[in-house]
Nucleic acid binder design. Sequence first.
DNA 1: CAGTTCTCACCTAGGTGTAAAATT
DNA 2: AATTTTACACCTAGGTGAGAACTG
Lengths: 211, 211
Amino acid sequence: KAGRRMFPAMRVKIAGLDPHQQYVYHSSKWMVAGNADSPVPPRAYIHPDSLASGDTWMRQVVSFDKLKLTNNELDDQGHIILHSMHKYQPRVHVIRKDFSSELSQNKPVPSGEGVKTFSFPETVFTTVTAYQNQQITRLKIDRNPFAKGFRDSGRNRTGLEAIMETYAFWRPPVRTLTFEDFTNMQKQQGGSTGTSPTTSSTGTPSPSGAA
Amino acid sequence: KAGRRMFPAMRVKIAGLDPHQQYVYHSSKWMVAGNADSPVPPRAYIHPDSLASGDTWMRQVVSFDKLKLTNNELDDQGHIILHSMHKYQPRVHVIRKDFSSELSQNKPVPSGEGVKTFSFPETVFTTVTAYQNQQITRLKIDRNPFAKGFRDSGRNRTGLEAIMETYAFWRPPVRTLTFEDFTNMQKQQGGSTGTSPTTSSTGTPSPSGAA
DNA sequence: CAGTTCTCACCTAGGTGTAAAATT
DNA sequence: AATTTTACACCTAGGTGAGAACTG
């Protein structure tokens, strides 16, 4: 019924906007890596602060932590619908609000000048309904405040868990986007099947189901 | 430090908008009844759903329940700053978004065609830091879910409390606004020192103070 | 039986009035 | 003495993974 959040969430910092122009933040397109376009165009998540000035956006770290995923095809609460056991790559769209094309979460992201799209290989992840990897489970329990109830502070730090020590002071990366970087970014867009263990690969479970 | 909400909150239903036009909901001006304009122009609360189509606004009951009041003159969290022990009358502004005058919570509400202001005598209230009236205290404890901890279901229903029985099934009024009503509304704008015991008169405490 | 759904104890986050303490 | 501030117990609301129950 309800969706579940991603953890860690996409967090982004941007530079190079016109401080007095209005912008919309859009997180989409939830590409299935290496698949043809799905029959239904995927939903986009419009950042709740949206329609704010470039000045406002640039002054803060933009966090997509309220975004929720679901595997319920009939979801009517605006959650992002994904398929379990698939690999996805989040994208961030920065859309300048000049021509007043009302944008909805279902309409495709507009294109043209004033619309920039970014994506990062390290944020590729695989959706699951049950964790397949004990390291991911521990990472989430140790880092997500809402899972504190499962923390077991006095535990044996054996072999495999030593790896987790690496994450003890790790923080989700905050990338800085500049429009100058954009042309470089484009080249990177094609095949990003990154298996970097740093972020949430094989992590985020897509949540419980239907209405 | 933190502000406190109003209870019950302003709840409003509107009709007569252009379904495809964009509108902003604005709750202000927090007039001190019968006083000259205060030195600092009062803040307005921009409804969080704002910049939505007339269609969207009309389909739902618009609730201002997230609005927070404070008596802290130096508040920097966007709460509405009021003075304790004063009488206020909330107003609702419906602002058509055609000329792109960016509206901020601090800027004065624009005027002209496409901007309609409504207020209701039954929503006049008096700010306090401690309740002066035991009936208000009981009303809030009985009706506000967050005060459930103070409910004492098996209690003596003595004299004064019998009055409260009246409120047992009472719900905050949902008013319907139409632009046709607007001219009538204007006449009512001047002196509304309504002491109707129905709503929150002598109720809402303005919250704890400073940063 | 691999994958999914459901329920639950255990958290975070924050909205209540109370009563004591501080302020004026 | 009257009003405001502060700390607090007790709620609502909702985000966790665990583990039992369910599904194909």
